[in-house]
Amino acid sequence: MKRLHVFSLQERPLALLLKERLRYEGIDCLLRNEELFSALGEIPFLECRPELWIIDEEMLPRARKLIEGWLREDEVHEAWTCPACGEKLEGQFDSCWKCGQERG
């Protein structure tokens, strides 16, 4: 078992999302320290950070590549205009909320 990534306390939802995305890709993993945020003050904050671990060490390179791609993908959110109705949308949306047209 190998540690893949350590998240900040604020990134806990992201850690849960990436764990599920890896499982969908067929990579067994677990999230450690998932509930330790409630113990802040009782134990050092660095020990409360969520950690994503890969069960099968042979899957580590593939998991790293996937995680890096997903994190890089999440950083780029360029706004776009719907080609069907002209609605201006934020970059994280893949389809128009107004007419349902998918991003080109």
Rank of each mutant, 00 (worst) to 15 (best):
Q101C: 05
M1N: 06
V76T: 10
E87Q: 11
H5W: 13
E35Q: 13
C29I: 06
L18C: 08
D56E: 10
Q101Y: 05
E11G: 07
E102C: 07
R21T: 13
E87L: 08
L89P: 00
G100L: 03
S95L: 09
L46T: 15
K65I: 11
A79E: 06
L52R: 02
L16G: 07
W80N: 00
G41I: 10
E78D: 09
E75V: 04
W80A: 00
A15R: 02
S8C: 07
E51V: 15
L17Q: 14
K2H: 08
R64A: 06
L4S: 01
W70Y: 06
P13M: 06
R32W: 04
D94H: 07
L14G: 03
L89F: 04
E102L: 14
F7R: 03
L60Y: 11
I43L: 12
K19G: 14
S38R: 15
C48N: 07
K19N: 11
R49Q: 14
C82G: 02
E47S: 14
E75C: 04
V76H: 03
G41T: 04
H77N: 15
E25A: 12
E87H: 07
S38E: 13
H5T: 07
Q92N: 13
P44A: 11
W70I: 05
F45R: 14
G86T: 01
R49M: 15
L40G: 03
P13T: 05
R23H: 12
T81F: 01
R32C: 07
R64P: 03
A39T: 13
I67N: 01
K65L: 11
G69E: 04
A63Q: 03
E90Y: 05
L71W: 05
R72S: 12
L46R: 15
L60R: 02
G91D: 01
E34S: 06
S38A: 15
L30I: 13
T81G: 00
A15Y: 10
C85Y: 01
